[in-house]
């Protein structure tokens, strides 16, 4: 991998890692949701630092390193989307239960107010 390309990858990966850490620091991103993002940026940094290993790994699948990075990137994105869907499913159930609780509590509050 040419030095310029290595540098570019490294800067992008570091920027992503810093961005995530900063978002966590500012409490805009929760720690549990940031883990997968941090993992992805660390993998990106490792790819730059251990490029010969990536070449060996790619050769195992008769692929070139660039295609391997693209493939791994796609898999990582799919995993991130799956994680978001999982979170969304949990939250949808929680929202449903909250809405029902509010609805029933509202009726109870009205009844109590009427009795007073």
């Amino acid at each position: 991998m040419p030095l310029v390309q290595k540098l570019f990858f490294y800067i992008v990966a570091m920027f992503l890692l810093m961005l995530i850490l900063n978002l966590v620091r500012k409490r805009k991103l929760r720690e549990n949701y940031s883990l997968l993002w941090i993992f992805i940026s660390l993998v990106l940094i490792l790819i730059v630092l251990l490029y010969p290993w990536l070449v060996k790994f790619s050769n195992l699948f008769l692929a070139n390193p660039t295609s391997m990075i693209m493939f791994c990137g796609m898999v990582a994105l799919l995993l991130l989307i799956l994680q978001l869907c999982l979170m969304n499913s949990v939250q949808a159930t929680q929202i449903k239960n909250l809405v029902q609780k509010i609805t029933l509590l509202e009726e109870k509050v009205k009844n109590v107010s009427k009795k007073k």
Partner: peptide
């Protein structure tokens, strides 16, 4: 009659389940 109201639209299934909980 007794009327309860969801703060926003949640769908038929959620509405009947609110009734079950009531």
């Amino acid at each position: 009659v007794i009327v309860v109201r969801h703060p926003f639209n949640m769908g038929y299934g959620v509405a009947i389940q609110t009734g079950y909980k009531f």
